[in-house]
Design a protein around this nucleic acid. Structure first.
Lengths: 399, 399
DNA sequence: GCTTAGAGTTCACTAGTTGGACATACACGG
DNA sequence: CCGTGTATGTCCAACTAGTGAACTCTAAGC
């Protein structure tokens, strides 16, 4: 960074460009790198050699159509990243390396009403267990991505005033976890991470604009615009759950009436089925029954789909993304819910915006958020860190 | 942008760096340029020569302490850009130079139902008249920005299937105007240009995320995200006018019911006042009467504001912009309409998103669109310096 | 008049990217 | 089993562009 307009800065930028391309795709051949970065093959050749000599990158032979292409990937043992996802009913942790390989993944149930402290302790334990199980070198851990199921101010790291996680309000999850683990922790809300996960590993490949709709106990959306998570200036973009569909609808926990959530989220939908199907029903149960043909459950899911579709239509008019990916428990319902969504979108969105929109189920299921957390850790990890080869020990880090 | 990682791109970046430094300071000596840009004196020397030869910049002798320093400033007549804005009732043209100064501006009434050809002819005449009036050199005109009051596919340049401009559908305004004027013409819809205009010259200074709501005979929004116009993959983002507020509301020209437009746009609102206030009322008239105290007009404007506020609340939940600027005729109503909008936003948007939102009237009035067109022409000719402070760091993430 | 110090220019050098030529390796069809 | 085709990665010469150092210029200060 010494020389802000010089060739060496250009070279650095190109190095980073290559590293990013590789990290995003997991692994690429040199020719692919050249195509995606726009650099010439010769330059890529030089850069790859330089990165290989520096240990940032590994090249492994690949079988392909023509000459054997060498697959370039971030060297696996160069660094470890960890993803942690707090859900409403579970805690999920994944360990991966820079090569986009997931080394281990584990989930355990977690009572969301547990105190925040307890949650962080559990997370710490699970992380440690996974590190031990995979036998990776603790000092290689370069960063942690953390997902929380509620609005969070990414700048300050504070959980918003949340009726959603009682007892967690005002805590700073990233800081808590960093104290416990001793590495930089980057936090974002679960919908954004789901979007990132699907973009990198799942149903969003090759797309630059993606909206990830997560329906669980709440309804949230993660937005990727032009290849980047879009959080908005206040960090709370994507709150699709609380757009108003019916001004005189049911009262929502947010204080308004007729929010999308009151028509789609588990806590409002399940009671509808209690009289007929009993009180112990979960969303997963409803989905399962619907797939087995239960008409009540089918109807409920279709209704939910229609309402989500209305919300997506608004989203579509305003943002015009090229793809919407549905995640959360509800995605398991497949066409049972996607059909009504598409129908609603076609009905309420302006035609030119709806025409080019594809609505797909998530490809990662419940793993989208952890994997997204992993991806967050990867993306937040300074590229310069990689390039210097300087092993990132503990961490002041936060700026 | 041909070669995204090459030396020539570096050169271009350095050129812009210099131009920006000069624009910010008004005028600088070469040594000062070198210091503020971090480039070496030799490089600055070369760049200044290149810019001078290209006519972008002027050098004038200065008396100074040592050897006479040459003061470098943007040459006013180096390049001329023109903005053209077709409104529903008017045609507006502005002429500006590369130093971001507006040299002349003029509007004349235009019947929107006139044929497209006629409109283009009028635009050509007005442009020629202004060129003559300001005495600028015709050959210096580098580009034209064009605003049209309807959805337009920026890629192909075709006006969308528009019930809005009867007789204009399927035409390619940019091409038409280019044939007449003989210079490159860049087109976008009026809401986007209004957003750009307010961002660069008006009420959006210093903000990176802005939503410009234009209420006239329709309702549209222009979105600026992270300093750039956001059009969405299909080019139709910002269609706030057709989000559904009431599924059983009035039938909209788009075919749905209860779109925001049916509660806010002139064509739906004015008829409400016909019985009491006569048939010749225009939106401007309503605004004027309201300011003078007419209770009916006040009520109508407040109602419109409330509905717009609902739409803005949705926008706010989904996108969380830091500023909303209201444009169009309605903006003249000031607090009479802004108050209800804010009230509605506060009511329907989630608190954390609404808290940091400011809703302001446009600072440019009806000029926002033309000036935006001017800005578009500037930015399309490679001037990425419209927003200072728009470059650095942040945003690691995935390209 | 002489010195001084900052301003701009020139020049040789270096860093870095590129296009094209070339070697390589696999697949496929005869 | 062997040509042929095709895509890959590498090498080299050409070119682009920025830099440090030496150089020239000018006006102010003594």
């Amino acid at each position: 960074m010494e020389t802000p307009g010089s060739q060496s800065s250009l070279h650095r930028a190109n190095l980073e460009r290559v590293v990013r391309a590789v990290r995003l795709a997991g692994s690429l051949t040199q020719a692919e790198i050249a195509r995606t970065t726009g650099l010439s093959a010769a330059t890529v050749s030089n850069i790859v050699r330089e990165l290989k000599d520096g240990g940032t990158v590994e090249v492994t032979p690949t079988s392909a159509g023509g000459r054997r292409a060498r697959s370039v990937s971030l060297s696996g043992d160069a660094g470890i990243v960890i993803g942690v996802d707090f859900g409403h009913t579970h805690l999920r942790v994944a360990i991966g390396n820079l090569a986009h390989q997931v080394l281990a993944e584990e989930a355990e149930p977690l009572d969301v009403d547990a105190s925040a402290d307890q949650g962080f302790d559990r997370a710490e334990q699970l992380v440690n267990r996974l590190i031990a199980a995979t036998g990776v070198d603790r000092t290689k851990v370069a960063g942690v991505g953390l997902g929380v199921p509620g609005p969070i101010d990414v700048e300050s790291g504070t959980l918003g005033s949340t009726a959603i996680l009682p007892g967690w309000g005002g805590t700073k999850p990233a800081e808590e976890l960093r104290e416990r683990l001793g590495v930089p922790v980057h936090v974002d809300n679960d919908a954004n991470l789901g979007a990132l996960g699907e973009l990198v590993w799942g149903g969003g490949k090759g797309v630059r604009d993606l909206a990830y709709i997560k329906v669980a106990s709440g309804v949230g959306a993660g937005l990727v615009i032009d290849g980047k998570i879009y959080r908005g200036p206040g960090g709370t973009a994507g709150e699709i759950g609380h757009i108003t569909l019916d001004e005189s609808g049911p009262v929502c926990r947010c204080g308004n009436r007729g929010c999308l959530e009151t028509f789609a989220a588990a806590r409002y939908v399940l009671p509808l089925l209690q009289p007929s199907h009993g009180a112990d029903l979960t969303m997963e149960g409803v989905v399962r029954l619907a797939r087995e043909g239960d008409p009540g459950c089918r109807r409920v899911i279709a209704d939910v789909g229609r309402h989500i579709g209305s919300g997506v239509a608004n989203l579509c008019n305003l943002l015009n993304p090229s793809r919407v990916v549905l995640g959360g428990d509800l995605a398991e319902a497949g066409e049972l819910v996607l059909g009504p969504i598409r129908e609603s979108v076609g009905r309420y969105a302006i035609p030119s915006a709806a025409r080019q929109l594809s609505v797909l189920p998530g490809a990662l299921g419940g793993r989208a958020e952890v994997l997204g957390a992993l991806a967050l850790a990867l993306s937040e990890m300074g590229d310069s860190t990689l390039l210097e080869g300087s092993s990132p020990v503990s961490a002041p880090a936060f700026t």
